[in-house]
Design a binder for these strands. Structure first.
Lengths: 330, 330
DNA sequence: CTTATTAAAGAATATATATTCAGGAACAGG
DNA sequence: CCTGTTCCTGAATATATATTCTTTAATAAG
């Protein structure tokens, strides 16, 4: 019976503290007990579930999917964005916005940011950065050489340069092909002092921003400006490759898939990425689910920004998200 | 759109703080923002009602009735106890228990406690005090002389003495009649050095514990050991008197009701009670509702301990309490 | 193109809260 | 009737949190 009286007092203390917003010392004085006791009572109130705290996720946020992603793939953070339709265009736009906000909010001074230049999602991110909202970064480092068509290279250069301007950082471009014609050609390029200088920054990158690519010959070949032959791609898929970031290929379990191609890539290595403090991946869309899953299994990625549809596929919660869900195979 | 991204971040911060129990600085480090920002985000989360805190009153407690009592009568605190049946015996027992716990929990060292000796509810309180749980008080002061029958006087003395022992205090008895035969008889008693000594403590009382009495001739006369005549009581009721504490009579609005009787009472005055830091009243039961209402209106009482039925009557919430409610006139 | 004004953020700091510590009492087992 | 043990306090203190202050930059008005 006196337990009830004790709980009543605790409930009253909790009421004064949480609902009336009074200070503990004020409550203590009011009830002629010590502040320490009030603090202990409040702790007990939590334990006894006399106070219950609920987080109401704002509509359009997917706290649960984010939690599942974090737990399942050991991510440091996950951001799942609302997206009305499961179309790549819309998805990339939403992810880009979220990534831009994330960058604005959490960018620290003097960071060295590595960017794998030619992902469309990253482009969307850059387009959405509010100039001045992001604090000063030090360098924006291009972590992968350009691809084929000089026009595309220009885009990459512009993306890096623009991001550098937005963050007040110095751009460090990688004036080289992403994929050299041969191992020898790669060595030649590496001997270029400018290339070297940029690549020497790779181990100093504090924040890497990656796109994740799938390996469907069609898009891959197109994107790469026909640097790869169909045969080379088949080598990758034959070895189990399901996707890549910065042209580091991996299989479903996230294991590195090494092919002759690997030796020709000029860009940041998986090992170097593993050393980076924060690796952020931006990716979403039906076709990429498998690639993303593999990427997450590499353990390289700290933070994933994706859309709700992809998040649902990745967590096996296809049927639990609000709104229409397609039962696309994963 | 970026507002959503901001809210998402806030929700995540709230989640980490409230659900995962992480420190703000930890969260700040995790998200690469300053602790100050986390603090601000958490405040915003409250404002935006992303975090909702609820106090779940333990079953058997009546937070709502307590709030209403506090608000309606300007009480510092109110305690409403559970009580299965609306019977005076059960009610007094429950109130006594609650009062005992209250005293144990909130008694400070070196307090001077005034007790109006002959209320049965107070007796129940004393019976329920856990020896040693209450900290040391200084004096237990009897604030009203004994009533009629010497046997009853003995009870009063025992109550005071016992409470004194339980709290490690020194008992200060009022060796006098509660109601003198005449004004002259009162003056005689007041000249007694022991009586004087105790009464000199009245202004120094830091905590007064009162019972509240109604004025039905039957019980009142019985209780008083026929000190009052029916006529005297009629004087009181004719003047609008509805109740008393420490034989200070008042009407429905809490105004003092002064009759010739008043000059014969030997006990603490209403004015002296008004000066006391904490005045606790213990009272409940159908028959006393009106008296309690008047008592609360005097403004003398800081804290009321009562039962749920009485509380409901006092707040006009007869129909809103859980369980059976009698529609007794108030 | 200036010059207020506002907003937002982190560093420094003030304030509030949690925890450690020491003391006292109850209890159990010698 | 003693211990040793546990539990419970409040005082002192360590720690965490809120706020102030200052800087920076954006926006609006002149």
């Amino acid at each position: 019976m006196s337990r009830l009286n004790e709980l009543r007092l605790i409930a009253r203390v909790a009421q004064m503290y949480h609902l009336e917003g009074r200070r503990q010392s004020d409550i203590a004085q009011h009830l002629r007990i010590s502040q320490a006791t009030v603090s202990r009572m409040l702790k007990k109130a939590q334990q006894e579930e006399i106070v219950r705290t609920t987080i109401v996720a704002p509509p359009g946020t997917y706290t649960d999917l984010e939690s599942k992603l974090r737990e399942r793939y050991g991510l440091s953070e996950a951001i799942v964005v609302e997206c009305s339709e499961d179309r790549d265009g819309a998805i990339m736009a939403r992810i880009g916005e979220a990534a831009a906000h994330f960058l604005e909010a959490t960018l620290q001074s003097d960071e060295i940011i590595g960017v794998s230049s030619w992902s469309e999602t990253i482009l969307k991110m850059v387009q959405n950065i509010d100039p001045g909202k992001a604090s000063k970064a030090k360098y924006i480092v291009q972590t992968l050489g350009g691809m084929g068509d000089p026009a595309v290279q220009t885009h990459a250069t512009q993306l890096i340069t623009r991001l550098a301007r937005l963050t007040g950082a110095e751009p460090r471009l990688l004036a080289a092909q992403g994929v050299a014609q041969s191992r020898e050609a790669k060595l030649v390029m590496l001997s270029d002092p400018y290339v070297r200088e940029t690549m020497d920054l790779f181990p100093k990158i504090t924040l890497a921003i990656l796109g994740i690519g799938g390996i469907e010959p069609s898009s891959m070949l197109a994107r790469s400006g026909n640097v790869f032959s169909s045969n080379e791609l088949r080598d990758v898929t034959d070895a189990g490759g399901v996707g890549e970031f910065s042209l580091c290929f991996f299989d479903t379990e996230g294991r590195t898939v090494k092919t002759p191609l690997s030796d020709r890539v000029i860009g940041v290595s998986r090992e170097e990425l593993g050393q980076v403090e924060r690796v952020v991946a931006l990716a979403g869309g039906q076709s990429k689910a498998n690639a993303i899953r593999g990427a997450l299994c590499t353990g390289v990625i700290d933070l994933l920004i994706t859309d709700k549809f992809t998040a649902a596929r990745l967590t096996g919660a296809e049927n639990s998200i609000v709104g229409e869900v397609e039962d696309e195979a994963v």
